[in-house]
Computed example of a mutant assay.
Amino acid sequence: MAGYRKLGRESGHRDLMLRNLVTSLIKSGRIETTDTRAKETKRLADKMITLAKKGDLHARRQALAYMTDETVVKDLFTDIAAKYQDRNGGYTRIIKVGPRRGDAAEMVILELV
């Protein structure tokens, strides 16, 4: 059994989609997406915030290698890391919104706590 969800995509497409979702979440503070995508994005976003809390050069380079926007990484390491310095995990929250009109997929809002 895989330790992640495949989300009906090939690996390259899935990886880039999740990178974009994580970048958007950290940039705007909240995104609306499907439930399964939100659960995967939450896992990766928490890892990025943990890297930012370390704050060293290696962690910054790892975050830059993963996220698609350098300005978001700068904000992550300066503002968001300081905000969560005394919190051990659980940096994001999932709020259920209801089914999507087109295909009845369960929609949620994923936001930073």
Rank of each mutant, 00 (worst) to 15 (best):
M1H: 05
Y66L: 03
I31P: 01
I109L: 14
K6M: 12
T36W: 10
T68G: 14
D35W: 11
A38T: 00
T36L: 11
K39I: 02
R5F: 12
H13S: 10
T92Y: 07
I94V: 12
T71Y: 13
A82D: 05
T23C: 08
K27H: 09
L25H: 05
D86M: 03
D46G: 09
E70P: 14
K27F: 06
L76W: 03
A63I: 01
A105I: 00
S28C: 10
V22H: 02
L21W: 00
I109V: 15
R93I: 10
A38W: 01
T23V: 05
L16T: 14
M48F: 11
G12H: 09
L16N: 13
G102Y: 06
D75Q: 13
G29W: 06
E32I: 02
D103Q: 01
L51E: 04
D79K: 14
A65S: 02
L7N: 12
D79H: 09
I31H: 01
D46E: 15
L64P: 02
I31R: 01
R87F: 10
E32Q: 00
H58W: 04
D69C: 15
R87K: 13
I94W: 03
T78S: 06
I31C: 01
K27A: 07
G8K: 13
N88V: 10
T23H: 07
R61H: 02
M67I: 03
L112K: 08
H58S: 08
K39E: 01
S28M: 11
G8P: 11
S11G: 11
Y91C: 09
G12Y: 08
A45Q: 02
Q62F: 00
L7Q: 10
R60E: 01
L16E: 15
L57A: 01
M1S: 07
I49T: 14
D103G: 03
D79C: 07
G8W: 09
D75F: 13
